[in-house]
Computed example of a mutant assay.
Amino acid sequence: MAVVTTPDTVRTSRGGRPRDPSRDGVIREAILRLLGDVGYGALTMDAVAAEAGVGKATIYRRWRTKQDLVVDTIAVMNQTLAAPVDTGSMESDVREVVHRMVDIINGPVGTAIRSLLPSMQHQPALTEAFRTGPLQAWRDSYSRMWAQAEERGELPPGMSQSVLAESTTALLTQRWLLTGEPVTHEYADEVLARVVLPLLQAQHP
């Protein structure tokens, strides 16, 4: 699964030279790996260039500072989160989305996000990029899933704004960000079977 997508628009450098968009994804993936390894504080432009296998000029042609580089990476992080999920039933839709989250948590994006959380307290630009990037993509994916379930008559209206909807991934997030316990597909299945699906089924009109 690709961890970072590259926008279709080809931006130009400050000097007007066209940028090679194929390099952007490679550089962003290098950033994610380094964030997971060393964190935001120890990240350097030189290290990114070396990890991506490009010259420093290629990095500085795209981003002026380390913050610009990381903010841009967060902003386009895993737009596949917003890919539609429509299996034909609420139960299988929820299962698909929850297992997708497990993959993300255990991949480079999940590791990078966790390493960035301490820095977000002091870097408002990072927080805003996360809020409008991966977090918004995740919310959009969930909202569409609840809307589909409502259209099929599986849930009453207003589910997307409910506490129940918010709680469907709460236990996974708790392990990921707080307790450090493994977030596995087996654990996700147990949460679905014992907590999430019974609560959702109880809402059936």
Rank of each mutant, 00 (worst) to 15 (best):
T87P: 06
T87M: 10
T87D: 12
T87C: 11
T87S: 15
T87F: 05
T87N: 11
G88I: 03
S89G: 07
E91V: 15
E91T: 15
E91Y: 06
E91M: 10
S92I: 00
S92A: 10
S92H: 07
S92M: 04
S92K: 06
D93W: 05
D93A: 05
V94A: 12
V94M: 10
R95M: 05
R95Y: 01
E96F: 03
E96L: 10
E96M: 09
V97A: 15
V97H: 09
V97W: 02
V97G: 01
V97Y: 05
V97K: 15
V97M: 13
R100I: 01
R100M: 10
M101E: 11
M101V: 03
M101W: 02
V102A: 14
V102S: 13
V102N: 12
D103Q: 08
D103L: 07
I104F: 02
I105D: 10
I105E: 07
N106V: 05
N106Y: 02
N106L: 06
N106G: 15
G107N: 12
G107F: 01
G107T: 06
P108V: 07
P108R: 14
V109K: 03
V109N: 15
V109C: 15
G110I: 02
G110T: 06
G110M: 05
T111L: 11
A112R: 00
A112N: 04
A112Q: 03
I113A: 04
R114T: 06
S115M: 08
S115D: 05
S115Y: 00
L116I: 02
L116F: 01
L117W: 03
P118L: 10
P118E: 12
P118A: 12
P118G: 12
S119F: 01
S119G: 10
S119H: 08
S119Q: 10
M120C: 11
M120H: 04
M120S: 06
M120E: 08
Q121F: 02
Q121L: 13
Q121R: 14
Q121S: 12
H122E: 14
H122P: 01
H122N: 14
Q123A: 07
Q123W: 02
Q123Y: 02
P124M: 05
P124Q: 08
P124Y: 04
A125V: 00
L126M: 09
L126A: 09
L126C: 10
L126K: 09
T127R: 14
T127Y: 09
T127V: 01
E128W: 03
E128S: 13
E128N: 09
A129Q: 06
A129M: 07
A129I: 01
F130M: 14
F130R: 03
F130E: 06
F130W: 11
R131Q: 09
R131H: 03
R131W: 00
T132D: 15
T132N: 15
G133Y: 01
G133L: 07
P134C: 12
P134T: 02
P134Y: 00
P134F: 01
L135P: 00
L135V: 05
L135W: 07
L135Y: 07
Q136R: 13
Q136L: 10
Q136W: 00
A137Q: 10
A137P: 00
W138S: 14
W138D: 12
R139A: 14
R139Y: 01
R139N: 11
R139G: 07
D140G: 13
D140P: 03
D140K: 14
D140S: 15
Y142K: 14
Y142T: 06
